[in-house]
Write a protein that binds this DNA or RNA. Structure first.
Ligand SMILES: [Mn+2]
Ligand SMILES: [Mn+2]
Ligand SMILES: [Zn+2]
Ligand SMILES: [Zn+2]
Lengths: 140, 140
DNA sequence: AATGCTATTGCAAATCATTTGCAATAATAA
DNA sequence: TTATTATTGCAAATGATTTGCAATAGCATT
């Protein structure tokens, strides 16, 4: 009955030390970590852990809807625990910093657009790229 | 003075057969092509063209603001000529089809959010993943 | 039109993120 | 405890994109 074992067992999955650790890191990590960062942090506790396990675990947690995968304007992805409030992200092209902001999508996008096109929305994501205050200063 | 030579020369770039061809394919290709599809089509006219040239050209055209790079929930990117009207995309997880829709972002997102956070927006993208009418039928 | 300078190309090899095969190991049900 | 089988670590594979380099081709200048 360690962290999350309930949900895992419920889904017919086994509760392992590495899964608990990875989940913990994402939870405590202020969100928005990428696979490699999760790997680095996890290795401090569990030096034999492999990167494949990180990827496999992330994929599983995505399928169980425990986490969200974020697609910024980068070649790799970031992860955060399934959030309570609908929010999106400002990502700094200079330093990579991520700033959250609230923005409920209008019913026009959530209902009318899909209805008009016969499209069934699975998930929506707004990605905003630009420069944070600090990096704006640094650029001029 | 073939297609686009003006813009290229203006930017201190050379106007080559392969660049004109690639630009043409994107223009005529109904948009939303990926690098490999552009490569395949270009090869029909120019069999010795290399994939690196496609990638190098895409990057250049992005920098010259001639095209937009689209980040769907896929591991590779898609490209379209810089559009006139602000629009976004519904991408089908089943068949990959792309459906465009109009959706001007509210001033809340364009002005108030960045102001509040001291953030300077460079570009915004909404990506909506789901299932198109045809694929919905196929799934049940 | 011929020349020279250098950007651009094709090709092969490199890189980066992610995935996969497989034999060893560990979690759970019996 | 033991048996069953999911999960792991490791190495190798994959897919997308990038890079080094020598050959080629734009284009400004004679
Ligand atoms: Mn977040
Ligand atoms: Mn479009
Ligand atoms: Zn920044
Ligand atoms: Zn479809």
């Amino acid at each position: 009955m360690t962290t999350g074992s309930r949900k895992l067992n419920g889904a017919g999955k086994r509760s392992t030390r590495q899964r608990a650790l990875i989940m913990d890191i994402i939870r405590r990590g202020q969100g928005h970590l990428d696979a490699d960062e999760i790997f680095r942090r996890a290795r401090e506790k569990e030096p034999r852990l492999s990167l494949s396990t990180v990827y496999r675990t992330l994929q599983m947690m995505k399928e169980l809807d425990l986490i969200d995968e974020l697609h910024f304007t980068e070649s790799h992805h970031h992860y955060e625990v399934k959030p309570t409030r609908e929010h999106h992200h400002l990502v700094c092209l200079g330093c990579g910093r991520v700033i959250e902001f609230d923005y409920p999508l209008s019913s026009y996008l959530k209902k009318e657009v899909p209805e008009a096109k016969g499209f069934e929305i699975e998930e929506t994501e707004i990605s905003v790229a630009g420069y944070c205050a600090r990096c704006q200063r640094a650029r001029r």
